[in-house]
C-alpha cells in the first residue's frame, strides 16, 4: 500500500511534536498547603516568646543536665548489650529440641511482655518489701552469704535489671525471627562440614540473620533510649529527671522539657545513622549495592540537594 502525501505529512507532525506530560495540579496544591503549614510551625517556634529559647540555650550544656544525659546513655548501652545477650540465649532455647527449655523461653517472653515496663521497674525497686533478705546457699539447705535487699537494689540497679529483662524478651522474638529467616540448608551444610554448633550459630546463622534483625532492633534501641526516661519515677537521675529537678526549682517547665527533647532527638539521630552503617555492613554478599548516607538523605528528604528535579516532577 502506498502512503498518501497527507499521511506522510501527518506522521512528520507527530514525530516533530513535543511530549507534554500530564499536569498534576493536585500535587502542587498539596505541596503548597504543606509548605505553608511548615512555615507556620517554624514561625511559631521562633516568634512565640514563651518557648524561651534563651533559657533552653542557657541550660542545654549545664553540668547536671549533661550528667543526666550520660546516665541515660550508659544505661541504654548496658541494657541493650545485656538484654541482647540474654535475648539470643532465649531465642536459641526457644528453637531447641528440649521441650522444657522451649517452654521456659516461651513462658519468660509471655510473662515479661504481658507486664508494663513501668510496673516491672517499680516491682524491682520495691523488691525489698517482698524479699527483705537475699541469701546465697544450697536450695532448702544452709546459706553462706546474705544481703539486705533494700541496700542491694538502689534505683539504678533496679532500672538496669527491669529494662534488661524487658529488652531480653523483645529481642528474643526479634532474634528468633531472624534465625528462622535463614535457610535451613545453611545449617545443614555447616553440619556436614563438621562445624560445631556454637560456631554455626556465630559464623553462619547469626550473620545471615542480621539483615532481618537490625531494622527491628534499631527500632527497639531507639524505643529503649526513650523508655529509659521512665526511671525518673524512681528518682534515677537520667536526662528527664535532671531537667525535672531543675524546673521544680525555677518553674521553667517548657524550656527545660525542650532541652531534654532536643537531646533525645540528637541521640536518636545519631543512633539512626549508626543503624544505617551497621545495616550496610551486613548487606555484603547479598548482591545489593550499598548506598551512601547522602544519597539516602536525598531519597527520603525530597528537597535535599535536588530542588529542581523535585519541582520538575511535580509539574
Amino acid at each position: 500500500m502506498l502512503l498518501t502525501d497527507s499521511e506522510t505529512a501527518r506522521d512528520a507532525d507527530l514525530l516533530a511534536a513535543r511530549l507534554s506530560p500530564r499536569r498534576r495540579p493536585g500535587q502542587w496544591v498539596a505541596a503548597a498547603v504543606i509548605l505553608v503549614l511548615f512555615a507556620m510551625f517554624v514561625h511559631t517556634l521562633i516568634a512565640n516568646p514563651r518557648f524561651q529559647w534563651d533559657v533552653v540555650a542557657r541550660y542545654f550544656l549545664r553540668i547536671d543536665i549533661l550528667g543526666g544525659l550520660g546516665l541515660t546513655l550508659w544505661l541504654t548501652a548496658a541494657v541493650l548489650v545485656c538484654g541482647y545477650l540474654l535475648g539470643i540465649v532465649l531465642a536459641v532455647l526457644r528453637l531447641s529440641g528440649n521441650v522444657i527449655l522451649r517452654s521456659l523461653s516461651f513462658g519468660y517472653v509471655w510473662l515479661v511482655r504481658s507486664v508494663p515496663p513501668l510496673v516491672q521497674l517499680l516491682f524491682w525497686y520495691e523488691l525489698a518489701s517482698l524479699y527483705p533478705r537475699l541469701s546465697l546457699g544450697i536450695p532448702f539447705g544452709p546459706e553462706f552469704l546474705s544481703f539486705n535487699t533494700a541496700h542491694l537494689f538502689n534505683g539504678v540497679l533496679a532500672a538496669f535489671i527491669a529494662l534488661t529483662i524487658d529488652v531480653a524478651a523483645f529481642s528474643a522474638e526479634i532474634v528468633r525471627g531472624g534465625i528462622l529467616s535463614v535457610d535451613a540448608g545453611q545449617t545443614e551444610a555447616a553440619n556436614a562440614l563438621g562445624l560445631s554448633r556454637a560456631r554455626i550459630l556465630r559464623r553462619i546463622v547469626l550473620p545471615q540473620a542480621m539483615p532481618a534483625i537490625i531494622p527491628a532492633s534499631g527500632n527497639m534501641l531507639i524505643g529503649m533510649l526513650k523508655a529509659t526516661s521512665i526511671v525518673s519515677v524512681i528518682a534515677v537521675q537520667d536526662l528527664l529527671y535532671s531537667v525535672q529537678l531543675v524546673y521544680n526549682q525555677n518553674y521553667l517547665i517548657m524550656p527545660l522539657l525542650l532541652v531534654a527533647t532536643i537531646w533525645y532527638i540528637v541521640l536518636t539521630t545519631l543512633l539512626s545513622i549508626g543503624q544505617y552503617y551497621i545495616e550496610r555492613h551486613y548487606v555484603r554478599g547479598r548482591g545489593r549495592r550499598a548506598r551512601g548516607l547522602l544519597q539516602l538523605a536525598r531519597e527520603n528528604l525530597p528537597l535535599f540537594g535536588r530542588l529542581r528535579t523535585d519541582l520538575a516532577r511535580l509539574s
Binding site: 535457610d183 540448608g185 545443614e188 555447616a190 556436614a192 550473620p207 545471615q208 551486613y282 554478599g285
Partner: peptide, 10 residues
C-alpha cells in the same frame, strides 16, 4: 547438596 547451600555472607 542440590541447592548448593554456599554460605552467602562469605
Amino acid at each position: 547438596f542440590q541447592q548448593f547451600n554456599l554460605f552467602g555472607q562469605f
